[in-house]
Simulated scan of single mutants.
Amino acid sequence: MTRKYFVVDHNPLWMEQFQTEKTLLKEIFGRSAVNIHHIGSTAIPSIKAKPIIDILIEVTSLSEVDMLNPELGKLGYEAKGENGIAERRYFQKGGIKRSHHLHCFLSDHPEVKRHLNFRDYLIANPEKAMEYSGLKHRLSVENDGDREAYLKGKEPLIKQFDKEAEIWFRKQN
């Protein structure tokens, strides 16, 4: 069965769900976890999102993450390897009714900065967040939840906001 991508209104419980999962993950990762971040649309107040909590863990070693696969499996996470992004370890929880995505990167990996900049930029710029939310909603409805069309449709705006977020971040620091 193919999963469909539909977005829903923001749920304030998403932050609590992240915090609960963060506690469980801290126990498993221990000192291997440098930081654990809530990323993706569920981390941005007021915008529509797929009801899947995206978590980014900055780690000290990907080989240590690989050794945690059995423990993460007990928590319901399925290891997917790099899954299209070099030097990442990716996990999904919830099977076809996915509830969590877990992305593990070394702290200096460029994807860490990109994800955090994107999230923080949209939080700091609610009008941009609403533009993104509207696009996601429109794409999920127009494409009847088709994953590929949804992802392809978001790509130009994400690239634009990534560039804007990088400039915004530099101005903040």
Rank of each mutant, 00 (worst) to 15 (best):
M1D: 01
R3S: 00
V7I: 06
V7C: 08
L13R: 10
L13G: 08
M15W: 01
M15H: 10
Q17N: 11
T20R: 10
T20Y: 04
K22D: 10
L24D: 06
L25I: 04
F29I: 03
F29S: 02
G30F: 02
G30R: 05
R31Y: 05
R31P: 00
R31E: 12
V34R: 13
V34G: 00
I39C: 01
I39Q: 01
S41K: 01
I44K: 02
I44Y: 09
S46V: 07
K48I: 02
K48F: 05
D54K: 05
D54Q: 06
I57Y: 13
V59R: 05
T60Q: 14
S61I: 09
S63G: 10
D66R: 12
M67R: 15
E71K: 12
G73D: 09
K74G: 09
E78P: 04
K80R: 15
K80N: 12
G81P: 14
G81V: 12
N83D: 14
I85V: 15
A86E: 13
R89C: 03
Y90Q: 00
K97Y: 14
R98L: 07
C104D: 10
L106V: 11
L106R: 02
S107W: 03
S107A: 15
D108N: 14
K113V: 13
Y121K: 12
L122R: 08
A124Y: 09
N125W: 02
K128W: 03
A129Y: 05
M130D: 06
M130T: 10
M130L: 13
Y132C: 08
Y132W: 09
R138E: 14
R138Y: 12
E142R: 09
E142I: 11
E142M: 14
D144Q: 14
G145K: 09
D146A: 07
R147I: 04
E148S: 09
A149G: 01
Y150P: 00
G153S: 08
P156D: 06
L157A: 04
I158S: 08
F161L: 05
K171N: 06
K171Q: 11
Q172L: 09
N173H: 14
N173V: 13
N173F: 06
